[in-house]
Design a protein around this nucleic acid. Structure first.
Lengths: 199, 199, 199, 199
DNA sequence: GATGAATGAGATTTCATTCAT
DNA sequence: TATGAATGAAATCTCATTCAT
């Protein structure tokens, strides 16, 4: 029991950090804010995390590895390429649905900020693109996807579309009702796979 | 001649800022860096710009208004919806081609950072999405585009795809040779309009 | 013991500030000077005080409240109006005698600088005038003081006389030996109550 | 005509400075504010005055020399000591009546700020005290004033009372109607010469 | 593990003054 | 005289990180 006390504190801090980062953004968040939100002594944050940035890193890793896992599993599954893409899109969208604050942090403070310190995660982020590219390539190999579009290029297009959707929701530019979230997955996949033009 | 000295200095600072922002990112750039790069006294930056942020704002406005103008004009032209989208995509891609540093700054430090101070520009940024949505809606009205996809949604998808491409180039995740840039416009438009699947 | 360490530091900074303010004046004092004089890290000043100005405020409040208390008590006592005025004058003069640096700061940087930020304290300062006016008014009601002079007016006269004395001592315009200080109280009161003219 | 243009400009700047100093205080006034208020180019201020402080100095000297002159003349006149004091008090009060902005600047930014740069004028300021002390001493020699009060001390008391009155008017602590100003001279003199106590 | 006081390196911004025209 | 752009030295305040208890 007592041994679990510590990890609990760590979790407590991580969760608080998500809320504060989501509210104020990483840069505008002071370590003191996190400690206060977590209802924990200032110094304790540094007991569990070596730096503020490291805290964000952990948050990102935790989530992003799940994403990579999900896409990886989809890729391994016997589903069609289109279904695999749907799993990827679905996972990201559902992540937002179930924990919008965390996803906001990951998108806004890491993924979309990949210049500064986000550079740290470029490789991780890129892994996702690579996995998606792989799915596309498979689709091309199977003859389902056209092969005049580079898989890597298609992957960027696909991921960019999804990230932009999340951004739109996060910044309040497009409606984000439950229904919108429900439909989003199908819509992105349809758009990317079938295109806007009538067939 | 002499009377043009002042505006020239302003330009000089603006240009230097682009270089430094592109190199180090907005947050890691000190005003001193800009002054040094511009070979100008520290205080002169504040003579022309009320703050570092304001400098970035001006940079953004300057370029983004051109973008809005370009898409607006395309929209007014007699071209087909698909051609109009091509103009939009082309303008953004060419902006990167001809001034990658400036576009890096605009994408990385403003557009993709629309949380913190980038929030200031949300409306401007959104205007672009709205213009694109309008083009899509017209395509639907004309019966060229399928109408089971919300124009606003399609617009996010389209813009997201392009921005992700630029990001890929910026972060070195996908090749950015002249040839790649040449083809990119056609590829995005084809992907979004025709879809990945074979017809 | 250890638990008193923190407040001690605060005191340490406050005391150092008095010395530096007295020596250089508030405006010419940099926070760095205070930290150095207190033999404390720069940031600690901001740990205890939200700003340099706030530090001065605290210093002023601390002392001025004692003054108000002293005059208030005198007013409540059964003494004659003249004796009450003597208490007020005596308190101010003794404050200078026992802590000339602090009083210099309060007079020079707050009371006599009541324009700029000193405006913050105008109400507090005015409270002193009001208390004195009250004593004068009582004297008039008792028939001891002439009533052709507005109490508020008399109060300004009385306080102005004392403040000018302190200023004279501070700026070295009039001698400030122990003896001078000893006699000052009686002299001001005599001057203001009896007048310069022979009776 | 043309030759008068320059001096006019100088005056124009001085007058503007008075207004701005009175409004914002010397410290909060930027040279740019003065230039703007004077409707004159920035650099011209430095053409006529070697520094911002120097501008204030000139303003002070201009007025204070008149004060010294007035008291000096009074002293030379055949009037009684009390009448001479009345002239001094009257001159100061009238100065405020006819140009409250200028007097506000002189009192608030020079006389009451005699610590920092006001130190420059300490001698000038002290001259006034000395003149007043001289009048008191004469009164004592003539046997009109009691001689158990040091003239220098009495002088501080007298001047302090007047300055505090002006301060009260300036800071809005006591009423400053025309009537109040009219009566003030008589009241101060009566208070200081006859005292508060009934005879 | 837990606490929060202490540290000190920066970075922004201001503005008096100078100077070239 | 007149102009206003150019200069650059401060000084405040912030806050991530360390450390003694």
């Amino acid at each position: 029991m007592a041994r679990e006390a510590a990890p609990e504190r760590r979790r407590q801090i991580l969760d608080a950090a998500v809320r504060v980062f989501a509210r104020q953004g990483f840069h505008s968040t002071r370590v003191a804010d996190i400690a206060e939100e977590a209802d924990v002594a200032y110094g304790l944050v540094y007991h569990y995390f070596s730096s503020k940035e490291n805290l964000l890193n952990d948050l990102f890793q935790e989530r992003w590895s799940l994403l990579l896992e999900a896409i990886g599993e989809a890729d391994q599954s016997p589903a069609t390429p289109r279904e695999k893409l749907a799993v990827a899109a679905g996972f990201i969208i559902d992540s937002y649905r179930y924990d919008p604050e965390l996803m906001k942090v990951i998108i806004v403070d890491v993924t979309r900020a990949a210049d500064s310190f986000g550079r740290t995660h470029l490789e991780q982020i890129n892994s996702a693109y690579t996995l998606i590219a792989k799915i596309v390539a498979e689709g091309q190999a199977e003859g389902v996807f056209r092969d005049d579009i580079d898989p890597r290029f298609a992957s960027m297009t696909f991921y960019g579309a999804i990230e932009q959707l999340l951004s739109g929701w996060i910044f309040g530019l497009i409606p984000a009702t439950d229904r919108d979230l429900d439909e989003a997955r199908g819509l992105v996949v349809r758009t990317i796979c079938e295109g806007l033009e009538k067939r």
